Structure formats: structure tokens, C-alpha cells
Computed example of a mutant assay.
Amino acid sequence: MTSTAIKFAAGSALLVLATGLFSSASQAQPVYRIVGPDGKVTFSDQPPPATTNAKVTSGSADGSKGGASASLPFELRKVAGQYPVTLYTGDNCGPCTSAKSMLTARGIPFAEKTVKTFEDTQALQRMSGDSSLPFLTIGSQQLKGFSDAEWTQFLDAAGYPKSSVLPASYRQAAATPLVTVNAPAAAPAARNDSAARSAEPATTPVAPPPSANNPSGIRF
């Protein structure tokens, strides 16, 4: 096969893939904000099965940003609602930094989830099949590892602008942990020993009755 034929075949395959992934981009579909049993928040155009016990509300790509989505241009808000972008990053991860820079430079509104704890890693493995970072989702599409060219192709296919159209007032939301672990309730403060002793009624220790293993009834 000639190099021209190879390039044409590769281009056709990408077009078919992009068409299959984003053929519904022109259709107005609801976006569901799904909170799983492990606390992880995802967005999808399909509701989860009832057996997952996940909490579902209608949402958008900017659900974690509160009212920030209202400041986005209409077309960007529309595509971000249909195909929200979420970036999963870790500490001391050079490719993660490059990935964030690429998305920021292009003006992609995205949610960032950090993977730092054992619970985070387990949740990432259940979702992506491994624990490699960075990890990107565009709608339901998953991209493992940072590749400027590959990410650009999928963002283009989703309909994101090729250059930033974000207003000057837009602020990227702070990163949040992939799994939110509720802190245990604080134990009641211990009373002062002397106060505790004075508050307790005076009792006379009673030696345990003799037994076959302790014939003298000795208290230990």
C-alpha cells in the first residue's frame, strides 16, 4: 500500500470514529450528572442503570463550577454540555502539566480530578482499566496518556472551538479529589482526670469470686 493510500485510510478511519462518537452533536440531548456509590461525579448523555444506586440529576460540563457555565458563549456552552471534558491528574506528573496547559491554551472548560489516595487510584482503575495518568474523558470517550495530536483530533470532532473563545472573566475551577472521603466524626473531648474522678460515684472494688483458674480470687 502506498503512503498516500495509508494516509487516506487513516484519515477515513478517524472520520468514521469521530462520526460514530459525535453523530448526535447536533441533537439536543439531556446531560446527566451521576454521583456513584464511591462519590465520583461523572457526566453522560445516558442515565445509569437503576441497579447502580447512583444519584442522578440533570447537569452540564460546568456543573462543578456553579454558575460559571452561564458566562460561556452559547456554542461553547452547548458542546460542553453535550461532551463535558474531565482531566485526571496526579502529583509530580509532567505529562499532566502539559495536558492542562494544552486544554487551557485552547480555551477548553474542563473539570480536574486529582488522583492521590488509594481510594482515588482504585476508582480510576475501575473507570479506565489502569492507573496511568493523565487520563481524559470527552463525554463518554476515554483517552489514556497525553497526546497533543490525538486530543486535538477528538476535541475537534466533538465540536470544540480550535482557539479560545472564553471570556476574560472566566476562571477555571479548582481541582478536586476523584473520591471524596467523609472525615470521621470527632470523638468527644476527654474530661479532666480529676474532674472525671470527682464526678464518678465512689465504689468499692469487688474481687472476682474464686474459680478453678483463679482459686484465690486475685484481681489483675
Rank of each mutant, 00 (worst) to 15 (best):
E112G: 03
Y32L: 04
S101N: 05
T137Y: 01
A158N: 04
D38Y: 09
E150R: 12
T121F: 12
Q122E: 14
A5K: 14
G20C: 11
A207Q: 11
V85Y: 01
A18G: 15
P109T: 07
A195M: 04
Y160D: 00
S64N: 05
T117H: 06
A70T: 10
P210G: 00
K100R: 13
N92V: 09
A175K: 07
A18W: 04
N213H: 09
Y83V: 03
I6H: 12
E150Q: 14
G217W: 05
F110P: 00
K7E: 15
D156Y: 10
A10Y: 08
S164Y: 03
G129K: 04
T152F: 10
A10I: 08
A174K: 07
I218L: 14
P215H: 06
K40D: 02
S216V: 03
M1F: 12
S3Q: 05
L124T: 00
D120M: 02
S23R: 08
S24N: 14
S44I: 06
T152A: 15
Q141E: 11
I108G: 00
L76Q: 04
C96M: 10
T121D: 06
A175H: 12
M127P: 01
L166P: 02
A190P: 03
D91V: 12
K113N: 11
E200M: 15
P48I: 08
S101L: 12
S26K: 13
L178H: 03
S23H: 13
V35T: 12
P205T: 06
G159A: 03
A168K: 11
S69K: 04
K65T: 02
L15I: 15
V31T: 15
R219W: 06
A123D: 00
S169D: 10
V79C: 05
S71E: 14
S101I: 05
A54D: 09
A80W: 07
T204A: 10
T42D: 00
E119Q: 13
T97K: 13
